[in-house]
Design a protein around this nucleic acid. Structure first.
Lengths: 180, 180
DNA sequence: ATAAACTTTCAATATTATTTGAAAGTTCAA
DNA sequence: TTGAACTTTCAAATAATATTGAAAGTTTAT
């Protein structure tokens, strides 16, 4: 009996693959507090080779003009999409930041600012609680818990700052060494 | 002129501080895809000194029986809350995991499984795209982008696994050294 | 100054996620 | 086996969030 090795290499059409990616990125986004459409637009830009107009985004993702506009605007604010003018064209075009490391850095910075900072702030605020002989133990427990949460949050904050300020090479090297 | 230093140490009542913490933890949670109520219940358990019954949770947070039950259940599944029987009592009581490092480890593991794993999976799926002479360049660009996203996701995945498997001491020491 | 070409805004609408609470289910002491 | 005490479920109500699209606002070429 002849032994045969058969390899199945599963390929697909580019458009199908793009659609899958856009969908998955969209649902990942919504788990991360980034709205589905914005994440989909971002995925579209990540994989686009040419600058796209608002119209093209609308058509590809089947969303309204206003929706496209607002989300593209936010992506520009976040530094993940750039305005780009095509010569001769009146219309605005946009390109996405293609360097995935830069994308990660920006997302880290934004989420840190909007999520970690407020909690550290509040933890500091509630650190000083009046203690009476009646509730001494409870206050001690509360203060200890808040302290330890604050330490962890600050550690995370510092780490993320360092990570998002570093360049990719440093990051990858350090982590590879760290976790060998 | 006499120079005076005046320190204001702002203290507050324990209940006020707890309420603030519960609220902030709730809104942090909702940004992280954890629903507000569940995060609030979790905060309540974090700062409670005694085991609480479902009833007490309902009353403190002014939520319905069903809501309390479902969210406590999920917190138990996540390993953040434990059932605890009080001697003589028929009722079920619950306590929260108080070690904030363990809490972080568990949350990291869960989010990794539900968010990072699916994206790595999809990225692998869409890596092989048929290339024709017509769209060669576009396919090359797409494949390169997907590859780099996959690398970053895998790096994050590996890092998180190591972090969530390590003990707090190791983690803190390593990061302190790393980012000195 | 005008109007065509394009972008932005926002009130109304649709969608999605959360919460409620009453009914069904469970457990246990007697 | 019963029923009181408690827990769980889930369909309906509510609340939060995202989307639409028509109208208002800009910009630019002439």
């Amino acid at each position: 009996m002849k032994v045969q090795k058969v390899f199945y290499i599963c390929t697909m059409q580019l458009e199908e693959a793009k659609a899958k990616f856009i969908n998955q990125w969209g649902s990942l986004g919504s788990k991360w507090g980034i709205n589905r459409t914005m994440a989909q637009i971002h995925a579209l830009f990540l994989t686009a080779t040419e600058p796209l107009s608002a119209e093209e985004v609308m058509e590809t993702l089947k969303i309204s003009r206003g929706n496209a506009n607002m989300n593209i605007r936010t992506l520009i604010d976040w530094g993940l999409v750039y305005k780009k003018h095509k010569l001769g064209e009146r219309k605005e075009f946009f390109t996405g930041e293609k360097d995935i490391w830069k994308v990660a850095q920006r997302v880290i910075k934004i989420r840190q600012r909007t999520e970690l900072d407020p909690i550290v702030q509040v933890l500091s605020e509630i650190q000083n609680v009046e203690s009476t002989s009646k509730n001494e133990d409870e206050v001690a427990h509360f203060t200890k818990q808040i302290e330890s949460i604050k330490s962890l949050a600050e550690l995370a904050d510092t780490s993320l700052t360092k990570i998002s300020n570093s360049n990719q090479g440093w990051f990858v090297r350090t982590f590879m060494k760290l976790f060998k």
